[in-house]
Design a protein around this nucleic acid. Structure first.
Lengths: 219, 219
DNA sequence: TAATTCACGTGCTATTTTTCACATAATGAA
DNA sequence: TTCATTATGTGAAAAATAGCACGTGAATTA
């Protein structure tokens, strides 16, 4: 198997498989199969095999996958075999909630700094972290070896924050600001947009009357 | 144009277009074009036209789209022309942050109730809401006409919470618990999984050493 | 009024993603 | 050892998604 680019859909699923493998290890289960995994998420087993096959031959025909071994492989593939140091930009409610988010620590991500540009926030203590002035980001990022940033500022500030983050040398950013952001290809940006998720749900709720919508004609 | 099922990718984009149209209205811009919109998100203009064409012919050839009119149409399509009443299950940090999330109120979603099953939380005030006992959900949902639920409880409680939500008659759920959830087709579930997003970022950071990964052979 | 420009709507094509289905390899029983 | 069973890895087919390119209608200019 040879592939130049791994789809993000694949890496997302790897993350899902990994979580499941952690559970299987905890339950002291030694082997599993693509079919067994598939049923848990109602996915297709061939897809799981293919996702894994991009990176090597981890399975044993007639047996399946050794749980611990596969866990270790995926951990390595996703680069989770080392700690990632995270900073959060924006010490508002969302930023604060994220700073305390259990899921970070659970998966080798550690929040090591928070930033804000409001005088009210700078110097405050959130969890066990002091909020730094955003202006210091380049310095702190390099000193603290930060490699991931989380944007939790209002939409209208997000672009300038991203620009600063980028020039501070960070290349992986998780963005919670509901706005499109420009950036160059060196930087990987993932946006989590709650409004989009909500509005998609609303569409589902609106659906029953869809037939009408389709008949609608111009303005 | 005739289509039986609208892709979720399309509804997600509709939500993006809508946000942009709000901004254009605010800026007092009267018309726009698929090309104009496309450039803002670097999307393809044909895709935008197609997304819209699923629901009617909203544009005018040679002109483009009338901003207000299109905004109104998309608002209606997404079912945002009426208030949605939201409850949040889980009054922990995330639930609390979400209860105060500005984005909800901004887009015709109103958080009207919070639930928890811990005695520490029940009866507490979060924002301007009292935290109810989760056991009361069926009753409150019907009395308060709630149509959307947000799950913000630990992963190990999420399935049972979802089951209760479903039996209380809610059909649209936004889930923040990082776990796969079973549900029937009456119910629309959207999961926001921060761990997956983070681990995908980690993969990007790990990439430089990808060549090695590909050579790896069995256990 | 005729000619030109513009941008929509959409048939068709290309690309991406998923699924099928089978040859292959490992295991265990007879 | 041979046969049956199991589950992988993968080429090929199918489905879903995105993009091209052009016919068409509306507006504007001459």
């Amino acid at each position: 198997m040879k592939v130049d680019k791994i789809s993000e859909l694949t890496t997302n699923r790897l993350s899902i498989y990994l979580r499941c493998l952690h559970e299987l290890v905890a339950a002291d289960i030694k082997t599993t199969s693509s079919d067994g995994l598939a049923k848990r998420f109602n996915l297709n087993s061939a897809q799981i095999r293919k996702d894994l096959a991009y990176f090597g031959e981890f399975g044993v025909r007639g047996v399946g996958y050794y749980v611990e071994s596969l866990r270790d492989h995926i951990t390595k593939i996703l680069g989770l075999d080392r700690k990632h140091r995270v900073c959060i930009i924006g010490a508002g409610r969302l930023g604060t909630a994220l700073a305390n988010y259990y899921g970070f620590s659970q998966t080798n991500f550690e929040v090591v700094a928070m930033f804000d540009s409001s005088v009210d926030k700078i110097g405050q203590i959130v969890g066990n972290l002091t909020v730094f002035d955003l202006k210091l980001i380049t310095e702190v990022v390099s000193k603290q070896q930060i490699d991931v940033a989380v944007i939790a500022v209002p939409a209208n500030h997000a672009q300038s924050v991203l620009d600063e983050i980028a020039s501070a040398g960070i290349t992986a950013v998780l963005n919670f600001a509901p706005t499109p952001l420009r950036h160059n290809d060196e930087l990987k940006l993932k946006t989590v947009d709650l409004t989009i998720s909500l509005e998609s749900l609303a569409f589902f709720l609106a659906k029953p009357t869809m037939e009408n919508v389709n008949i609608v004609k111009p303005n």
